[in-house]
Design a protein around this nucleic acid. Structure first.
Lengths: 184, 184
DNA sequence: TTGCTCCTCACGTCACGTGAGGTGGC
DNA sequence: TTGCTCCTCACGTCACGTGAGGTGGC
C-alpha cells in the first residue's frame, strides 16, 4: 500500500478541484480567504496544489453549504471536535424554519394581491397540480384550501368558475367542486 | 370640505412618516435614493416634508415590500399604469416558490445531518407539534412521515423510542406508534 | 505561436443599519 | 442650555461573480 485509503495521490490544481465538486474557482478562493481550506503547496509558478486532506475538508464544507450553513459557522464547526456541532445544526434548523415561514407569508401576500386585482382569470400556463402545490407552499392545509374555495365561491362565484376552468378542469368537475364549496 | 378624502393636511417629517409605517428613517432614505418616493418640499432648515401623495405611495411600496418584491421591480410597478403589474406579481410568485423549495431542501439536509449523528435523542425543547410542523415544512406528506417512522423503527428502534419519548409522548402512545410503524 | 489555466487585486451585488460630524427647533 | 430631530456622507453586510492586467505550460 503506497497510499492510505481514499488518497488518490494526485495533487489538484484549483480548476480541477472546483470541477470535481461542481463549484467555481472563485468559490474556492473565497473559502480560502475565509479560512476554510487552502492548498497544501504551490508550484514554481505559484499555482495552488491541493492534496487529499483538502479534498476531505472540501467534502465537509460542501455538505454544510448544501445545508445552507453560513461560512462563518462552518469555520467554527471545522475547528471543533467532530460531534460537537449539534448546537449549530439545531440553530440552522430554526433559522431555515423561520425563513420558510417568512417566505410563505410573502407568498400569501402575492396571492392576495393577484386575487384582489381579479387577474386570477389570467393565470396562464398553470394547471391544477401546480396550483395545489403552490397553495400548499403557502402553508395551507386541506381545511384551509376548503375554506379558500368556500370564500371564493361566496364572494365571487363567476371568478371562481373562471379560475377553475382556467386550470383545465372539466365543466362537469367544476360544477361538482362549486357545489361542494357551498356545502362547506 | 377643505381637504380631499384621506388627506390629513399635515406634512410629515421623515421620522414621523417612518414611525407611522413602522419603518426606519434609513429605509425611507434608501427608497428616496432608489427613486421610489421623496418629500414634496423642504423646510428652511432643509428638513424633508412629506405630503399625502407620499403617504399613498408609501402605502403601495410597503405592501409590495411585504410581498418580498425587489425595490427595483417596485419602481417599475409604480411607473406603469395601475393594473399592468400582473406579470411582475406572477414572476415574484415563481421566485418565492423556488426559494421555498431551496430552503426546504436545505432543511432536509440539516435533518439528515442530525439523524446521521444520532443526536436526535438530544433534541431538547421540542414537542410533538413543533416537530410535525418542522417536518411538514420540509415538504413531507403524511405518507412520507409514515415512511420516515417505518425506516426509523427498522434502522434504530431504541433511538426511535427515545426520540418519541423526548417529544413528551406517553409511553403507551409511543408503543402504539412503534407498532403502527412496523405494519407500514 | 496559440490556447488554456493560473495568478492577484478591485469592484459590484441588495436593502438597508450604523456611525461620524454637524446643524435647526422647542 | 439641553435634548430631540434632522442633515449628508461613508462604510459594512454575505457569498460569491466578473473583469483587468499579467504570467506559466503543453
Amino acid at each position: 500500500m503506497k497510499n492510505p485509503p481514499h488518497d488518490t495521490g494526485k495533487p489538484l490544481t484549483i480548476g480541477r478541484l472546483a470541477r470535481q465538486f461542481g463549484l467555481s474557482r472563485s468559490t474556492l478562493l473565497y473559502y480560502e480567504a475565509e479560512g476554510l481550506l487552502g492548498p497544501a503547496m504551490r508550484t514554481s509558478a505559484n499555482y495552488r496544489l491541493y492534496d487529499d486532506s483538502a479534498v476531505q475538508r472540501l467534502k465537509q464544507v460542501a455538505a454544510y453549504r448544501t445545508a445552507g450553513i453560513p461560512v462563518r459557522d462552518i469555520r467554527r464547526m471545522l475547528a471543533k471536535p467532530p460531534g460537537r456541532v449539534t448546537g449549530i445544526l439545531e440553530r440552522q434548523l430554526e433559522q431555515l424554519n423561520r425563513k420558510i415561514g417568512e417566505l410563505r407569508e410573502q407568498l400569501r401576500v402575492v396571492v392576495r394581491l393577484l386575487e384582489n386585482r381579479e387577474h386570477l382569470k389570467k393565470v396562464r400556463a398553470m394547471d391544477k397540480e401546480s396550483w395545489v402545490a403552490l397553495l400548499r407552499n403557502t402553508g395551507l392545509s386541506e381545511e384551509d384550501m376548503a375554506r379558500w374555495h368556500r370564500e371564493f365561491e361566496r364572494l365571487s362565484p363567476e371568478a371562481h368558475r373562471d379560475f377553475l376552468e382556467s386550470l383545465g378542469i372539466s365543466g362537469e368537475d367544476v360544477a361538482a367542486i362549486r357545489e361542494w364549496s357551498k356545502t362547506l
